[in-house]
């Protein structure tokens, strides 16, 4: 009886094993006997080719999308940089006098002293020096310097904007500002604190006061708004280059 104790489970095990083995063998033989196998193999080859192509396409698409993302970011960064640069350019153009300037300030007018000249000529023709009764380049130059000392932020003479490199000189009776011929009367406009600008020109030893005392027809007026046109000249550098730090 002790034998039967393990014989029963063993029989069961062998029985199941037998069934399993049979099924396995049937499966294997069935696959070999499939009549469409040859045709299916061609189809499968085609399917596999397609799958490979699709995998490659998907890889390309993924790479392209990543690249596009980078481009978009670069473009956005570029746009931001452009905005920064344009903002800076607007600022520099204002400083460089390339834009029309508006603001409080003063208007100075200067004219040749024709009455004084006629009177002097009539009184003493031999001693008469006509140039003593004309506005000269130096008068304009020194008044402009006074205005700069008074904190003028923009200056023009007869609508010629005065910039850093503006020069004022005379050729015969003609005054050239920015190499443009000007004729009297001269109107100097300056933007800045009107009070300070007036004070500096009205100092007793200033060029303006000297002209006034000499009898030239000059005037000085504070304005709430002065409009100064932009500099029309160029900023070209032939000899100068920025020193890299």
């Amino acid at each position: 009886m002790t034998n039967l104790k393990w014989q029963l489970p063993l029989t069961l095990v062998f029985f199941i094993s037998g069934i399993l083995l049979a099924v396995t063998l049937r499966t294997i033989s069935a696959s070999d006997q499939n009549p469409w196998r040859q045709r299916n193999e061609n189809l499968v080859a085609m399917i596999e080719t397609q799958e490979k192509i699709i995998a490659n396409l998907e890889k390309s698409i993924e790479e392209n999308r990543a690249y596009l993302d980078r481009c978009q970011q670069e473009l956005a960064a570029g746009k931001k940089e452009l905005e920064t640069l344009q903002e800076r350019l607007r600022q520099l153009k204002v400083w460089a006098g390339l834009t029309e300037a508006k603001g409080p300030g003063i208007i100075v007018t200067l004219d040749d002293n024709r009455e004084g000249a006629e009177a002097a000529q009539a009184a003493n023709p031999t001693q008469f020096k006509p140039e003593d009764y004309l506005i000269h380049d130096k008068h304009l130059l020194y008044i402009i310097n006074d205005l700069r000392v008074g904190g003028a932020e923009a200056i023009s003479v007869n609508d010629q904007r005065i910039v850093t490199s503006s020069d004022i000189r005379c050729v015969g009776p003609m005054i050239l500002v920015n190499t443009t011929r000007l004729a009297p009367p001269y109107t100097i406009k300056a933007i800045g604190n009107p009070q300070e600008l007036m004070e500096i020109l009205e100092q007793p030893e200033s060029e303006y006061s000297i002209l006034k005392m000499a009898g030239f027809p000059v005037s000085l007026e504070a304005k709430e708004e002065v409009v100064i046109p932009p500099y029309k000249g160029g900023y070209q550098f032939t000899y100068t280059e920025a020193k890299e730090e």
Binding site: K93, L98, T164, T240, K243
Partner: peptide, 16 residues
């Protein structure tokens, strides 16, 4: 353009 204006305005050191 900025560099040119910076030179004109004296905002950068220059040589020549």
């Amino acid at each position: 353009e900025l560099k040119r204006l910076e030179i004109a305005l004296g905002l950068v050191p220059v040589k020549g």
